[in-house]
Design a protein around this nucleic acid. Sequence first.
DNA 1: TTGAAAACATTACAACTCTAAATAATTGTT
DNA 2: AACAATTATTTAGAGTTGTAATGTTTTCAA
Lengths: 166, 166
Amino acid sequence: METTQEDQVLISLRQIIRATDLYSRQLSKQVGLTAPQLLVLQSIHRLGATSISKLSTDVSLSQATVTNIIDRLESRALVRRHRSNEDRRVVHATLTDSGVEKISEAPTPLQDVFSKRFSSLEPWEQSMIVSSLQRVANMMNAEDIDASPVLHVGGAIDQVHENSAS
Amino acid sequence: METTQEDQVLISLRQIIRATDLYSRQLSKQVGLTAPQLLVLQSIHRLGATSISKLSTDVSLSQATVTNIIDRLESRALVRRHRSNEDRRVVHATLTDSGVEKISEAPTPLQDVFSKRFSSLEPWEQSMIVSSLQRVANMMNAEDIDASPVLHVGGAIDQVHENSAS
DNA sequence: TTGAAAACATTACAACTCTAAATAATTGTT
DNA sequence: AACAATTATTTAGAGTTGTAATGTTTTCAA
């Protein structure tokens, strides 16, 4: 039986998902934070005091999951919760001092190896990979997008808004 | 603040992982099987009576996880276990009749939308996506593979087999 | 042959993840 | 003002996943 292109997609995806998970656990040992925890922390850092729901869409996790993660972060005093005054339904999360500190000492949420190798690729290669990933993500979420004409492949690749100007 | 290419990778990845998870749950409602369960079932179908460890590398999951999944499959009589006679350490898993039936009625382990849209892409587009995914997977696993500069798309998959006895 | 090391599988445990239901607060309608 | 509908978050419950520890069986060497 031969492997189709689609099979290859599936295989790669599983490997990627697994690698991501393994790295998360490794991270947890080294820094004391799992990848999703770090992700949420960074998101709070970036967005300022935001609602749980905003965080949830930002990191692509359900509200319940974010609540769960914040529970843990709060119990370690990396994050603090307080209800908004304008709208007492919403809960704002902010970083504590140790939360900020923790972020600064933490590595990337992606494998270091990956970062290193990825950044050493040619810009066009990076773009190709990014646009492929985006296409896959898009094709998977395509419930609403029924006939979305977007994504003209040619344009997608040229879309290099980042010029590695280091 | 600007999003780098690497950020884009991370974002897409999270979306893909989430989409995969959501689909798995949807599948579970429709067919009564989660994606990894289906995956394991198909793997047994394809490989014949194999050991747990072979299955585990085939579907990119840990042994413990496969054991766990097989527990569930066995309790539903989709799979049967029996110890090998040649080597009584290993456990073989085989499909029952209802297991085979289940497979035939199950959809792809990937979103139907995805399959549909992916298969409607031009061959070169498919190849580009596959090779991008493979590169990502490889860059993430790159512990052993130290300086492998090139990925010949065809052969890339076999590389992952090797699991170093350092 | 016997004992140590290795290989295979399972168990125990902890984290993550989701959906659905429950709780709390706001908004809109009458 | 009171009640319904909506919005935001949390809780409850179940499945997936991995590591570490455990129990078996095999292999190998003295």
